[in-house]
Each structure stands twice: as structure tokens, then as C-alpha cells.
């Protein structure tokens, strides 16, 4: 057991960091007066409060004692967080259908248990279902195949 509660300490630091960032950024905005508050007034007050709370949380970490944070899901973070980013980067270029297929495949990589063939099968099924529901049935304005794929004709 550590003497310091790492979870509390880190959380406190994180809140201080956010407070300072928002605070510094709010300095560039007009404060105004209490009567006519400018765009910077309310955020500035909040940023100061958040920094204060962050300090208080870090301070309590020295009193409460250690607490294990546990492992982080690194593999999960890479692939799960990567999936929507990939979708964002390619949905216009590749088009909805190929982009969604690859996105699902990337997300499937986050786990270790799904065999590659099943993952491809799952991605095909998901793509088919979503294309039918969102693009065909609900008529959302997605381009099914994008300009990066000239052969498909768009």
C-alpha cells in the first residue's frame, strides 16, 4: 500500500490542468462587468473553482492512503479509440460501406478472443445490416462508395 492515494492525486492534477488551461484561454476573452458579463466571465469563475477543487482533491490524497488503480486496457484504447477516428478520416473518401467495414474490423481487433475469420464475417454482417437500415431504409445521406474508389462509380 502506498502512502498516497494515487487515484485521487492524479485526478486532482488532471482537474488543476483543465482549470489552468481553460483559465489561461479565458484570459484572452473579454471579462466584462458583473452587470454586463463578457464571454470570459463565467468560464473564468469556473476555471478558478475547478483549479481550487483540483488542489483540494490532490491534498486529500495524502490523507486517504493508497488505492490500486489497476491495469489499463492499452490494446483496447488503441483499437477502440482508433475505430471512430478511422471512420472520420475515411467515411467521405472511401464511402460509407468500405469505411464501416474496416471500422468494425479495427474495433474487433481490440479483443483477443475473436478469430480473424469470425471477425471478417462479423464485419460483413454489421456492414450489410447498417447499410440496409441507415442508408436504404432510413435514407440518411451517406455516400455508399466514395471518390477514392473510382471503379465503384460512387
Amino acid at each position: 500500500m502506498d502512502r498516497i492515494n494515487k487515484a485521487d492525486f492524479t485526478a486532482g492534477l488532471l482537474f488543476i490542468l483543465f482549470g489552468l488551461c481553460f483559465g489561461a484561454s479565458a484570459l484572452g476573452l473579454e471579462m466584462g462587468t458583473t452587470l454586463r458579463m463578457g464571454p470570459g466571465y463565467f468560464p473564468m469563475v469556473l476555471a478558478v473553482v475547478l483549479t481550487g477543487l483540483g488542489l483540494a482533491i490532490s491534498a486529500t490524497a495524502f490523507r486517504t492512503g493508497g488505492e490500486a488503480v489497476g491495469t489499463y486496457a492499452w490494446r483496447g484504447m488503441v483499437f477502440i479509440l482508433g475505430a471512430p477516428v478511422f471512420f472520420g478520416l475515411t467515411v467521405r473518401g472511401l464511402g460509407f460501406v468500405p469505411s464501416l467495414f474496416l471500422t468494425t474490423l479495427i474495433a474487433a481487433l481490440a479483443g483477443l478472443k475473436l478469430k480473424p475469420l469470425y471477425a471478417v464475417g462479423l464485419a460483413v454482417a454489421v456492414t450489410l445490416f447498417c447499410t440496409l437500415v441507415f442508408s436504404v431504409a432510413l435514407g440518411l445521406p451517406f455516400r455508399r462508395f466514395g471518390p477514392w474508389l473510382p471503379i465503384m462509380g460512387g
Binding site: 474490423l105 474495433a107 481490440a110 478472443k113 454489421v126
Partner: peptide, 30 residues
């Protein structure tokens, strides 16, 4: 569960994107 979360991620991506067709929303979601 390992079958579920890829499906959930696909729906998440479509759902978030289709609000405004804004790809920045997808970066924000990550």
C-alpha cells in the same frame, strides 16, 4: 462480449457522424 463491442463501435460511429455529418464529432468521441 467480444462479438458485441465491434457492433457497438460501428453503431457509435454511425450515430455520432449522422448528427451533423461532421467528422470532427468522431474525433471528439474518441
Amino acid at each position: 462480449y467480444h462479438v458485441l463491442f465491434p457492433i457497438i463501435m460501428a453503431f457509435c460511429s454511425i450515430g455520432v457522424y449522422s448528427v451533423n455529418s461532421n467528422v470532427y464529432d468522431l474525433y471528439a468521441v474518441a
